[in-house]
């Protein structure tokens, strides 16, 4: 995946994520589109693309919210690292496995970000709220990530950048 395509997905993901209202149920998590882009890079690309994706996606996410700069990058790096560790354990192209990994990583990213924000007093959350929200983002990611992967893979095939796979 060329850096330009990565930037395209990050800008589109950020725009869509900021346009869609948060899900009203299960702690009101946002649709994890940027997380999906990071996971795609983590599961399908070389490490440097994943790291660049996580840092840039975090930058976009923080810029489009009230979170201090760097918090989302930390959470996305944590989630992406988990995906990289799991990468060899499953076949990334299967929708069901992608869905499970997406859910697990979304819960990790949400939990990390919640801990960071809570530790600095930016949000007032109880442990229960946090777990509920982690579950909510896991549900959203389980549905969204396989769809996003299919979309990104489709674009890559059309553009002929599929051979970039690590």
């Amino acid at each position: 995946m060329k850096l330009l395509i990565l930037l395209f997905w990050l800008l589109l993901g950020g725009t869509l994520q900021a346009a869609l209202p948060a899900w009203r149920y299960m702690g009101q998590p946002a649709f994890p589109i940027l997380l999906g882009v990071v996971l795609y890079a983590a599961l399908n690309k070389k490490a440097r693309y994943f790291v660049a994706a996580a840092i840039l996606a975090g930058l976009v996410e923080d810029a489009l919210s009230l979170a201090p700069l760097g918090y989302s990058s930390c959470s996305l790096l944590a989630a992406g690292t988990l995906a990289v560790l799991l990468r060899k354990e499953f076949f990334a192209d299967r929708a069901t496995t992608t869905s499970w990994v997406g859910a697990l990583c979304a819960a990790t990213a949400t939990g990390t970000l919640a801990l960071l924000l809570r530790s600095k007093g930016f949000v007032a959350l109880t442990g229960r709220d946090m777990l509920w929200r982690m579950a909510g983002s896991a549900v959203l990611a389980a549905v969204l990530v396989p769809l996003l992967f299919a979309l990104m893979r489709g674009l890559e095939r059309r553009l002929g950048t599929w051979e970039d796979r690590a």
Binding site: A18, A30, L34, L64, S65, A67, L113
Partner: peptide
Amino acid sequence: VIGRDSTGWWQTVR
């Protein structure tokens, strides 16, 4: 109004 909080942690609009 062109957007909302991208993380869902705050009730904001852009």
